[in-house]
Design a protein around this nucleic acid. Sequence first.
DNA 1: CAACGGACCTGCCTGC
DNA 2: TGCAGGCAGGTCCGTT
Length: 272
Amino acid sequence: MPELPEVETTRRGIEPALVGRRTLDLLVRKRQLRWPIAPGVEAAVRGQIVRGVDRRAKYLLLRFDTGTAIVHLGMSGSLRLLPAQTPPRPHDHWDLRLETGMCLRYHDPRRFGSLHFTARDPREHPLLARLAAEPLSAEFDADALFAATRGRKVAIKSLLMNSRIVVGVGNIYASEALFRAGVHPALPGARVTRAQARALTGAIKQVLAAAIRTGGTTLRDYVDASGAPGHFRRKLAVYERTGKPCRRCGSPIARRTLGQRATYWCPACQRR
DNA sequence: CAACGGACCTGCCTGC
DNA sequence: TGCAGGCAGGTCCGTT
């Protein structure tokens, strides 16, 4: 599901309704997500004022005075703001109910998402501690990507999706960024040149920013906090466009599996 | 370490 | 119509 643009769109959508508001409680309908929701989370967030809604990589961080709730949407998760009395649909696994009468409702058919709570600095949480730089930060630049790819035999596309190298880039935007940079997805990391690293960092920043501007990409499940789909799908150059003409040169878009993930590229525009 | 395959789960689509 | 198989936006974990 959600890659960085979809998570950021969700963050922006839920923030105004949450910050400064007090929670009533957390209603858990299904604890078995990717990891079971720990039994203490309800008590930790009950009756607390939301101090901030942040994002780190694809994690959403709800800050309270008692600590931080860490939410991941997995492959099929979404968060919506709804009146608390709205009847739950299948796969609505938890509600964070607010004193305002609204609730933040977590929906996730595949249950690859998660909900954690930490009383400590969330940056020290095991899920977040070893993450690389944010792609839209100045810290992620050509030098950083070039250095991270040295000595790596795996395909550059797999490295772009590796959260120890850069976070937030998933299967859609990895293919899209490689197309924009004119780099072949199967190029081994070690063979990426400095110029290609520069093109790739630029392309990643560009494509993620452009996707955020249109509310992200909806393929199947993803909706934003108000239930609306994202519109970046229309702008996708290669993802799920097998056999269709390249928007730049007209050649048919190719597809293959790399690192067990579907990968799309233009064989004419991306020659290594 | 790096690389790789498997695991977690449901829904939807295709083809026999 | 039914059923098996494959596929889907993520990422952790165990094995080599």
